[in-house]
Structure formats: structure tokens, C-alpha cells
């Protein structure tokens, strides 16, 4: 984690109201992993007093750039869209804990709902670089909001669901999951809370339903891993990237918690944003 003076390289509206911005920040480009995020300062202190958290969408060490992907939802994101190439951007990062892929996992199932694509996008690149097979299930309200396939590497199998049936499967993206469950060694998801809750219910019953063995003998056996530990995530079938309103993004203010399975709130910015699905209490409602 560092405070970085980044520079805006490019800003592109990829979908109506959705932007991808490239920032020159070599420390982030080389030092971050899929699932981590940055906390970006917007505007001046008297007006906008909080930074905005964004998943690191992609990282390119050769050019020293990272990208973030966001929708304009308020004054902070609108302020960002007014930046021009060359403008300085104050970035705190990389923050939070990344996705952990088990070394033995060959087939990765990624599930993204809407802007949740930004949370798993970098994992696509990492997994393909490491020679794994990736299927990305993407859900949106309608064809208008579907992430352009041109922004994804060719190697990924990209399957789309839209609520109104205007493109791909008509219905929720979670309805596609059963077809891939047996194939997948691990799943990684980011999106609206109800989607993640539905996926966690699927993951919890997966072994019984499919009758599949766990990867390796020791997996899941013995003492439970510490919440937030890399091992807890690596052993999980499903890892989720959570979102929450944030203040500090470094673990100091306790503004960003989600309820952990053990009854202790966990900080999205510190123990997360990536959690093993079973580390969280999906019934608590927060």
C-alpha cells in the first residue's frame, strides 16, 4: 500500500455511462494482483471528502498502467470523467486481498453481474497467463449493458445472460452456473449481493449434488483457516469479491464491514474484498 501520484493516460466510455480509465502507475502495474483495489481521491477536500474505491480492472506491467472501470453514479465518478490525459490522479493502493487460485485448478469459472466484471476482469488475464481455462459468465439487465467481448482475451469462453433476454440466455446469470459446476475446479464471483448469496448457496451444496471429491485429501479438513487468510480462500470452491461503502480503505474506520460466518464483522477493505464464500454469513443481511 502506497500513496501514488498517478497520471491519467486514457478515458473511454465503453458503454453508456460506463468508463474505463487507464492510469500510469508502475508500482500498481507490477505490484498488484487480481481482486485488489485502489482508493482514488476525487475533487478537493471541502467538497468531496471521501475517496472512491475501484477494483483494479487490468494491469499492464510493460506500459506501467492499470485500468479502472466504473459507472458514473455521483459527483465523485463524474469528477473523474472530466479528467483529461496527463492530469494527475492521487491513488492509494494496492489495497485488500486478492483472489487465490489453487495451483491444481485447471478450469476456472468466473461469474460477473454488471459492473462486477471489474472485480474479476484481471483474474481472466492472470489465469490465461498461467495456462488455465476460463469461462466467464456475465449477467446484465439487457444487451445495452453487456460488457463488450472485444475487451476480453480470445482464450476466454464468454457466456452472456440478460434479464430481458435481449442477448444470450434470458434470465439470471446464476441459472447458467449448474452447467459449469462439474467442469469448474474453482469459482470466482463479483456482482450484486443477491447474486453472490445465490452463488454461495449453490457452492455450499455443490459437493452433495455433484458427488465430486474435494481437490486433494486435506482440503477443508482440520482446523478452519483464519478469516482473510490466503489459505482459506485458496481451499474454497467459491471466492467472492464484496462491495461496501468505504471511508479509509485501510482498515481504520470499520465503515466497510460484512458479517462473517463466525459472527464477527469483517472489513471488506482489509480481510477482503475477496472472501471465501463460507467465510461470510449470507443470512445476516449485512
Amino acid at each position: 500500500m502506497r500513496l501514488l501520484g498517478a497520471e491519467l493516460v486514457e478515458s473511454r466510455e465503453i458503454l453508456p455511462g460506463q468508463f474505463i480509465q487507464a492510469l500510469h502507475a508502475p508500482h500498481l502495474a507490477t505490484g498488484s494482483r487480481a481482486g485488489q483495489f485502489v482508493h482514488v481521491r476525487t475533487g478537493d477536500l471541502s467538497g468531496l471528502v471521501l475517496r472512491r474505491p475501484f477494483s483494479i480492472n487490468t494491469a499492464d506491467p510493460s506500459s506501467g498502467t492499470v485500468t479502472v472501470h466504473f459507472r458514473t453514479v455521483g459527483r465523485g465518478t463524474e469528477w473523474l470523467t472530466r479528467l483529461r490525459p496527463g492530469d494527475p490522479v492521487d491513488v492509494l493502493g494496492p489495497l485488500g486481498r486478492p483472489f487465490e487460485v489453487d495451483a491444481r485448478s485447471r478450469h476456472l469459472l468466473l461469474i460477473a453481474g454488471g459492473l462486477g466484471i471489474a472485480g474479476v476482469r484481471m483474474l481472466v488475464d492472470e489465469a490465461i497467463r498461467d495456462g488455465r481455462q476460463v469461462t466467464l459468465l456475465f449477467g446484465a439487465a439487457s444487451a445495452r449493458d453487456v460488457y463488450p467481448s472485444s475487451l476480453l482475451p480470445d482464450e476466454v469462453e464468454y457466456v452472456v445472460a440478460t434479464d430481458d433476454g435481449s442477448l444470450g440466455h434470458g434470465g439470471y446469470v446464476t441459472e447458467l452456473v449448474p452447467q459449469y459446476e462439474a467442469w469448474a475446479d474453482q469459482g470466482f464471483a463479483c456482482g450484486p449481493a443477491p447474486m453472490l448469496a445465490a452463488l454461495s448457496r449453490l457452492a455450499a451444496t455443490r459437493r452433495q449434488r455433484l458427488g465430486v471429491a474435494k481437490l486433494g485429501r486435506k482440503r477443508g479438513a482440520g482446523r478452519p483457516d483464519q478469516p482473510g487468510s490466503a489459505a482459506a480462500r485458496r481451499k474454497a470452491f467459491l471466492q467472492v469479491s464484496m462491495e461496501q461503502n468505504m471511508g479509509c480503505a485501510v482498515g481504520a474506520c470499520l465503515g466497510c464491514v460484512v458479517m462473517g460466518a463466525s459472527g464477527t464483522p469483517l472489513r471488506v477493505c482489509r480481510e477482503g474484498p475477496v472472501f471465501a464464500a463460507e467465510e461470510l454469513d449470507w443470512e445476516a443481511g449485512w
Binding site: 467538497g47 461503502n245 468505504m246 474506520c253 466497510c256 443481511g285
Partner: peptide, 30 residues
């Protein structure tokens, strides 16, 4: 951070939001 006799899990989320020229928080002394 505010310290109490027994552990406290704090308030339900959302706990923070930006407001004009400031912010609102309801951490609930976690």
C-alpha cells in the same frame, strides 16, 4: 477507536456515506 468493556460488533451496514462537505458514520462503536 472508541473502546468498551466488552467486544461490540457495531451497527448494521451501510455505515458510512458522503454528505455535502462531509460524511455520515454510524459505526456503532465496533
Amino acid at each position: 477507536k472508541g473502546t468498551t468493556l466488552r467486544p461490540r460488533i457495531g451497527n448494521v451496514t451501510p455505515r458510512v456515506t458522503e454528505t455535502p462537505g462531509g460524511m455520515l458514520n454510524s459505526i456503532g462503536l465496533q
